[in-house]
Design a protein around this nucleic acid. Structure first.
Length: 858
RNA sequence: GCGGGCGUGAUGGAAUGGUAGACAUAUCGGACUUAAAAUCCGAAGGGCGUAUGCCCGUGUGGGUUCGAGUCCCACCGCCCGUACCA
């Protein structure tokens, strides 16, 4: 028996595909097109198991679509701008560009042995000047259409390093390098006007039938449409009234104070004059800008001394407080608080000893509000005590609507629809990104660069030290001459913008660029018209909101600016979100390092014995933490290259697809990889054995084998089409077992092994080609038409029905498939177990679900 | 804090509201072998029992249903996101 050598055959078949050009995508009107795309990687320098899983899933779809007669586009590129390149330069010298391109080379080298059906001729990186130059052109077009503008926005400021920090660089409210307390500071920045499309981005979610419901729901909540009441509180001092927005105007009679954001104009005015307010506001501005940091920070309040009048009762005065949890970005930056019906307001009122006005809404068994607020349900009717809008009993929604009507009629407020979605700030004070193509002129102000002057290229390092990453801040700001230019409008000496774009911009249109990656405009409309939309997009759930929402916005913006057709306003027809690849962590349970930190061991350093896990060399006990995200610091990263070199790409591909459902995390285990390798060997050996069979020898059970084969075709096809790769693989195991035990003749066995090879080919393309060739298959299995299940072979004549008594399984009967319900019931009632259970009596009820089950209620 | 998701044998997991544990791993037994590896065959959720079988069992506690892993409510734990990580 000859042994299957993965390394040999994999290289051989990759060369054959390459030579035949089977994955090269060209426009062709005689086949339906299919565009499959996996979220492109950041070139960190090493291919990760997660990449392997992601690209293998895409590859299964791409190869399957190829064999079902589609013209497939399956491209790959790199999301190559971003902080890690600058961090690497900071840590060990060198240049972000060199670091990035070296990493790209490495990763391409690592990807190629996987045998992915990619059209490598379309590859690009977002840091290619040809790409970001077109992105600048796109930016200018968007600017012209009013989709980009400038305003002030808050950033994390490190007061020691005097630099802006990314959220990731703020650890527990402190700068990652300086350790200083981070402050929030305002800066003028560029924004995409994504909020102008809030309604459209929301309502179009309805049409995304092939997106996971959870992603649509998350986006819906993120956009956060709300209907509420906007009105003003008159101040007792006669100053400008304070306008508030509330989604629960029905709780107005429980108002206890009016709260304003520390960034509210009133707070800012007081800050300038009153040192106490200034100190409080400074306290509020400590810490990072993330919503999480703001929402989980201790609730702080400051009584401004200002009083306002309740709109329903001018004699009722409410105090005005500054509170750190009120965001200037949402609503009007001011609220009224109703502690009885909102938990956060209640906690705040208890802390600062503000009045809690009880029970405007009540259930029959309502208790007075102590430390738990009663939030009136939106859709359930409750009593509305002390109401003002004419309803004694109402659902939350009815009460809100009634209040809005009441306020509008009385003329003191209006119903307003608001969205939580904020505009997208794209300015980054960093070097390694796409320069924002605008110029600052003393006389003309902010002027867009002329298109003929594009690309605005990043300076590499002309004099050897112009770009220095060892000091904090943006190297573009410090560059001796890069900023110098002339004003595109008046020609006078002017300065370039030194901010670069958020890397989310780069990844918001790359899918469109793949349709014409070398075009000298952002897209080529004819190519985009043909290839768009992405038929199947695959990536991690972590991108459920930002990347996918930004891409939806960009597709619309590109339609407005004439770079994408109308049909591409929703660019991704179907979305699949896959899980992570995890691996156990081996933590030393007996000691820590000199700094008291945990010691993590590599899988190779530990062994399992006596029911425990121990360090091989020292015998120390190990605490096994199962299924953790692979992370360098935990020493639990499995290098795909090691797997490929010891078992081959097909084994790695087979393993990452088996066991776990694709949307869930999969834990990498050495035994799992071993098992995958064994199985592929087994299939190859089967092929070998069948190849040696006497072609004329008669066997038994040909029809049974072929029947199973057609079932396998049906089930695997269904599995591949519905992203049930693990289920498809389980069927393939089952069919392999059947084939291995079959006594069928040579012809039937040959047909079965060739079909098996075909069904496996999206997952294990190299092995499948080899089997196909061994059995004398025509051409490449990669381009052979996908097998079709014969319905006639799938018909079953009898079916086994379980019999339940009171919902518990007590036996089974074998009946003809289409037997009458009454007949089934009769048969079931004569079953021994049923007769015994009924003990001569009549059943209370008999439920017969045809082809499924019989339940007798005794 | 808020939004979303997940939780099933020793392990990964399967199961359009209809026989819970398919398929695989680890384990155990057997065949082959001088032996081991490889390969092949078989056992196996837990408990009781010689056995036909009976009881228990899908994170916890309730509910809906003839029937719940699946639907509803509450809770616990973990994961993702939280707008400057990509």
């Amino acid at each position: 028996m000859s042994r299957y050598s993965a390394t040999e055959i994999e290289a051989k078949w990759q060369e054959a595909w390459d030579k035949a050009g089977v994955f090269r995508a060209t426009r062709s009107e005689d086949k339906p097109k299919y565009y499959v795309l996996e979220m492109f990687p950041y070139p960190s320098g090493k291919l990760h198991m997660g990449h392997v899983r992601n690209y293998t899933m895409g590859d299964v779809i791409a190869r399957y679509k190829l064999s079902t007669g589609h013209n497939v586009l399956h491209p790959m590129g790199f999301d190559a701008f971003g902080m890690p390149a600058e961090n690497a330069a900071m840590a060990s010298g060198g240049h972000p560009k060199d670091w990035t391109y070296a990493n790209i080379d490495t990763m391409v080298e690592q990807m190629k042995p996987l045998g992915l059906s990619l059209d490598w001729s379309r590859m690009f990186a977002t840091c290619d000047v040809e790409y970001y130059g077109q992105q600048q052109a796109l930016f200018l077009d968007m600017l012209e259409k009013g989709l980009v503008y400038r305003k002030n926005a808050v950033v994390n400021w490190d007061p020691v390093d005097m630099t802006v920090l990314a959220n990731e660089q703020v650890i527990d409210g402190k700068g990652w390098r300086s350790g200083a307390d981070v402050e929030r500071r305002e800066l003028t920045q560029w924004f995409f006007n994504i909020s102008s499309m809030s309604e459209e981005l929301l309502s179009a979610l309805d049409g995304l039938d092939n997106w996971p419901a959870k992603v649509r729901l998350m986006q819906e909540n993120w956009i956060g449409k709300s209907r509420g009441l906007q009105f003003s509180f008159e101040r007792t001092d006669g100053e400008e009234p304070i306008t508030v927005y509330t989604t629960r105007p029905d709780t107005l009679n429980g108002a206890s104070f009016v709260g304003i954001s520390p960034d509210h104009p009133i707070a800012k005015a007081m800050e300038a004059e009153n040192p106490e307010v200034a100190a409080f506001v400074a306290e509020c501005r400590k810490g990072g800008t993330t919503e999480e940091a703001i929402e989980t920070a201790e609730k702080l309040g400051f009584d401004t001394g200002i009083k306002v009048k309740h709109p329903l009762n001018p004699d009722w005065e409410l105090p005005v407080w500054i509170a750190n949890f009120i965001l200037m970005d949402y609503g009007t930056g001011a609220i009224f608080a109703c502690p009885a019906h909102d938990q956060r307001d209640l906690d705040f009122c208890r802390k600062y000893d503000l009045p809690v006005i009880d029970t405007f809404f009540a259930l029959d068994d309502a208790k007075p509000v102590e430390n738990e607020a009663f939030v009136p349900p939106k859709t359930e009717k409750v009593k509305w005590v002390n109401h003002f809008a004419g309803l004694d009993e109402a659902t939350g929604e009815e009460a809100i609507n009634a209040t809005v009507d009441f306020a509008e009629k009385a003329g003191w407020g209006e119903g307003v629809t608001k969205y939580r979605l904020r505009d997208w700030g794209l300015s980054r004070q960093r070097y390694w990104g796409c320069p924002i193509p605008v110029v600052h002129c003393d006389s003309c102000g902010v002027v867009p660069e002329k298109k003929e002057n594009l690309p605005v290229e990043l300076p590499y390092d002309e004099d050897g030290k112009a770009i220095d990453f060892s000091i904090p801040g943006n190297p573009l700001d410090r560059h001796p001459n890069w900023r110098d230019c002339s004003c595109p409008k008046c020609g006078a000496p002017a300065q370039r913008e030194t901010d670069t774009m958020d890397t989310f911009v780069d990844s918001s249109w790359y899918f469109a660029r793949f349709t014409a990656p070398r075009a000298n405009t952002p897209t080529d409309l004819a190519e985009a018209e043909y290839w768009m939309n992405v038929d199947q997009y695959i990536g991690g759930i972590e991108h459920a909101i930002l990347h996918l929402l930004y891409s939806r916005f960009f597709a619309r913006a590109m339609n407005i600016t004439g770079h994408l057709p109308e049909k591409s306003k929703e660019p991704f027809n179907a979305l699949f979100t896959q899980g992570m690849v995890t691996h156990a962590i081996y933590k030393n349970a007996e000691r820590t390092d000199e700094n008291g930190r945990a010691i993590y061991h590599y899988p190779a350093e530990v062994e399992e014995r006596d029911g425990g896990t121990f360090v091989k060399e020292t015998g120390e006990k190990i605490e096994v933490i199962p299924s953790a995200k692979m992370s360098k610091s935990k020493n639990n990263v499995v290098d795909p290259l090691n797997i490929i070199s010891s078992y081959g790409a097909d084994t790695a591909r087979w393993f990452v697809l088996s066991d776990s459902p694709p949307e869930r995390d999969v834990e990498w285990t050495a035994s799992g990889a071993e098992a995958a390798a064994k199985h592929l060997n087994r299939v190859w050996n089967l092929c070998d054995k069948i190849g040696e069979m006497d072609a004329d020898a008669k066997g038994q059970g040909d029809e049974e084998l072929l029947r199973e084969m057609h079932k396998a075709i049906r089930d695997v096809t269904l599995g591949v089409e519905s992203f049930g790769f693990n289920a498809a693989i389980a069927k393939l195991y089952g069919f392999t077992n059947t084939l291995a035990k079959s006594k069928a003749g040579a012809a039937a066995q040959k047909q079965a092994i060739m079909t098996l090879a075909q069904l496996m080919s999206p997952m294990t393309p190299h092995l499948s080609e080899d089997i196909w060739a061994h059995q004398g298959g025509e051409g490449l299995v990669a381009t052979a038409p996908w097998p079709v299940a014969d319905d006639a072979m799938l018909v079953e004549n009898t079916v086994t029905l379980p019999i339940q008594i009171n919902g518990k399984r007590r036996g089974e009967i074998e009946v003809a498939k289409d037997l009458d319900k009454a007949e089934v019931e009769k048969l079931a009632l004569s079953h021994d177990a049923v007769v015994k259970a009924l003990n001569g009596g009549a059943p209370k009820k008999v439920i017969v679900v045809p082809g499924r089950i019989v339940n007798v209620v005794a």
